[in-house]
Structures are given as C-alpha cells and as structure tokens.
Amino acid sequence: MRVKLSVVIPVYNGADFIDKSYHSILHQSIEDFEILYVDNNSSDDSVLNIKHILEMDSRVRLLHQAKQGAAPARNMGIKAAQGEYIYVFDVDDEIYPEALNSMMQVLDSYPDVSAVFGKMVKSYKGIAQTKKPTDETGGVNIQETPYWGLKWFSNLKTVVGPPAFLYRKTVFETIGLYNESITNNEDTALDIKLGMTQRIAFLDTYVYLYFKHSESTIEQTKREIPRAFMIWPRLVKEHLPFYLENKTPKRFQELLFSQLFQAMGRQLVYTTGISTRVHLKRELYLDLKSISVPFAIRIYLTILSILPLENLRKVYGYYIVPYAVKQLIK
C-alpha cells in the first residue's frame, strides 16, 4: 500500500541506537509513513531490538541485506519502499523535530523539484545536549542544474550527508541507486550526480545531527585510510563514467581531472617501497585507460614513484596538474 513517506534505515551493529532512531521519526508528527530497517549482518542485538518495535508498530518493516555495505543496504530499502518520498537515515544520527515535515512541504509545493536538502550539525553528543545553531531562516533556495553538483564536487565540506536530503522516489528511477562498487563516499557520488542532473531545493533549516563517535564506520575509515585512497574509487567508478557518458560542463571536467591527477600523486607519496609504488602506478593507469593521461603527468608520476617526497608532490600539485588539466580540456 502506498504511503507518503518511506524512511530507510540501514543497520550494522546499531543495537544501542534502534530505539532512539525509531522515536526520532515518531517526533516528526507524520502519520502516513513507513520505516524500513535494513539489517546488514549485525552481530549484536540490532535485529532483536527491531523485532520488539515490529510487535508494537505495523508501519515498521525489517529487511535483511547479506551484501555488506551502506550502498547495498540503502538500495534494498529504496527498492522495497512504498512511499512517494524517500528519506535515508543513519541509525546513529538524530533528526530535529518537524524537519521532515518541513522538507515534505517543499516537495509538495514544488512538483518540479526532485529533492530537497537542509543543514546538519556535527556533535559528539545528542540533540538534547547540543546547542542548535540559530543561523536558519527557513527560506527555500532553488538552483538549476548543475549548480549544486558543481558546488559539492568542488568543495566536499559543503556536502551534508544522506539524512539531510528528502528525495522523490522517482528520482532514483532517473539517476539510479547508490553505486555498490564504492565502499566509501557512495553517498557523495550519488549527491553529485543528483546535483548535476536534477532540480534541487535547499531549505535553510537544520535537519539532523550527525553523531560523531569512535565506533562509527565512517569515523573508523577516516582514521585508517588516507583521503587520496578513499576518494579514488568514487572518482574512477562514478564521476569518470559520468563524464564519458554525458555532455558535461567545462568546470566539471576541470574538477574531475584535477582531482584524479592530484589523488594519483598523493597515493604514490603515501605508499612505501619503490616496487609497490611502481605497481600502484600501473594500477592507477589501468583505472584511467578510458582517457589519455597527459605526458607531463606521466613523467612526474614516474619521478614520484622513485622519489616520493612531499616537496616534489607539492610542485606536481601546484604547477604540473593545473597545466596538464588546462591542456587536456582546452
């Protein structure tokens, strides 16, 4: 049966947050909704806690996704969702009261808008213990494509995460689901594609609190993997194919090639052992076999493979990369 709103909540060992996530949705004062918890191989009491809620509330469903990762879990929930609108929520975060109502009103008022997003607060504490900023106006800002896509691609600090967004379900039929070949930044990959191709509204209000804690999968990954390695799969498995398959503006191409070449240099400098770096360089070239890597980039990457010095990497990043990108897209 169709409902107005489907809330998709992937869960991996989130037993301590199940009850809070459930009540966070209830506090939105929305009646026509469903909650889809997608268990992703939890080994704690997550499933047991969700089943307790199932016994009390028929609007809640439990799905099981054996393929590990946020993208497969989110995709399963989106496919099973019966709502006109889709909200993808992380189990350990919190939503500000009435935020979903406000975003739903935007989509109701602007039928040609595919998604709406708001602001987030990052905190090591919950909503009750965190002072909410006062710089929200409640205004709606609608920009044409590819404004938001280029903004997010050029500055990841402006990316606000899935729980800041409310989507029409139909948008996933247009742009596709989360890229399951990406294990990190798959949400950023989708958001940039969304911003490049769809009309999006910004609602100037705080939607959710991102709970920073040491057990968070994202926080663990940030500690363990240098950023250059984290963003590489997103660049070559999402943005590069998008460039090859679509007519993209010059600014998108500049950002794509600059980030690709910068990441290549950083990965080589961060890698120990000359034989390992040479092997890595070959692998990076294979990932870029669909494009022509400029000669200047190839020469300097060879130098960095032999002498992985940060000062040389800075010269490469400040001078060689901008020059090569300019030559590539002129």
Rank of each mutant, 00 (worst) to 15 (best):
A99E: 10
Q68E: 11
T217W: 08
T217N: 10
A15D: 15
S114G: 12
A71I: 00
L268E: 02
N311C: 10
I35G: 00
T302D: 06
G176S: 08
D135W: 00
R223L: 12
G77K: 10
I35A: 01
I218W: 14
D92Y: 10
I25N: 00
Y178G: 11
M76V: 09
Y178E: 06
Y208V: 06
V3R: 06
I291P: 01
G273F: 02
G77T: 13
S123G: 10
Q267S: 09
L268A: 05
L235P: 07
P322M: 02
Q259N: 15
L209E: 08
N141K: 00
G14H: 07
S181A: 05
S43C: 05
R251E: 15
I175H: 08
K314V: 13
P322G: 10
I18C: 07
Q82S: 14
H239N: 05
V7W: 01
K67L: 14
K326L: 12
K79H: 05
K4G: 02
Q198I: 00
P226E: 10
K79Q: 03
L177R: 05
L288F: 04
R234S: 08
K157S: 14
L26M: 03
Q267I: 03
T130Y: 08
V121C: 13
S216L: 09
K122S: 11
P226H: 06
Y124G: 00
W152Q: 13
T221M: 04
T302F: 03
K212G: 01
S181Y: 11
Y22L: 13
E254K: 09
R2L: 09
G265K: 11
I218F: 14
R251Y: 13
K125Q: 04
S114Q: 14
L156K: 14
Y270D: 15
V91P: 12
